[in-house]
Design a protein around this nucleic acid. Structure first.
Lengths: 133, 133
DNA sequence: CCGAATCCTCAAAGATACTG
DNA sequence: CAGTATCTTTGAGGATTCGG
């Protein structure tokens, strides 16, 4: 199948540096943060916290740091009291956000078909269990 | 930012059915399995186990079942002894595999830039810690 | 207001042993 | 060979507190 990330004979996640970056952008909160920042000039910490809904301060700070470290998110702290910090996507982050966004939308479009398949699968398993149990 | 998956005022992962499907295809082993099956006619359980390298039997079986339930992977068990089971991508699964594959390749291409950014970030943090500590 | 630090919980994932 | 069952371990993530 052509050239691939991690084409080592031993395709172990641990051996693959890009694997962890992939996990950053596809992680539970990573996806939502990138999606939320896409198309915005910038957002404050508390704005992100409120608009994501359900994320803890710890995970918000942690995920933002990870994305900043990877160069996907830019952090700008104004030296004022009370603190005012703005987060925005870098050009690289915008590319990443679009990619995961495309994937998310594809999943969204495929969802009806997936849910239907899941129901058939569960139904078959239920019947199989009935004969066994 | 236009129409979006989970555009509820409260963008909580728990409220979003497509979110879990997204996690299936971007999960640690999900990505590797889809990538491995892409371009192959079919592969046996043990072939997948060996070629992924590092995956436990439990996680292989579990991930394959999840992907089968979503309709991304087709499972064909021949009624022979010893057992012989073939796994392959469905048309839907092939689409999914290409999507995550594209994302993985994008990450791979961006990796040098990301790693460089990470080094600068760590260096800045190290210096900042030096003045504090 | 924006985090860092700490403690805690529980579900995901690995190891191992076993079976049709 | 292709799984299942069980136990243990790990670490992601939540709650809370404190500081700049």
């Amino acid at each position: 199948m052509g050239v691939s990330p991690c084409e080592n004979p031993d395709v172990n996640a641990a051996n693959c540096p890009s694997r962890s970056v992939l996990e950053h952008v596809t992680s539970r909160w990573g996806v939502l943060l990138l999606a939320r920042l896409l198309g915005e000039e910038s957002l404050r910490f508390s704005e992100l916290r409120r608009s994501i809904g359900g994320i803890s301060e710890k995970m918000l700070a942690q995920t933002l740091q990870t994305l900043e470290r990877d160069g996907f998110v830019r952090r700008e702290a104004r030296p004022v009291i009370p603190p005012h910090v703005d987060y925005s996507l870098t050009p690289l982050g915008e590319e990443a956000a679009r990619q995961v966004w495309d994937l998310a939308r594809w999943v969204e479009r495929s969802l009806p078909e997936v849910l239907a398949t899941q129901r058939r699968y569960d139904e078959r398993r239920r019947k199989a269990a009935a004969t066994t149990g």
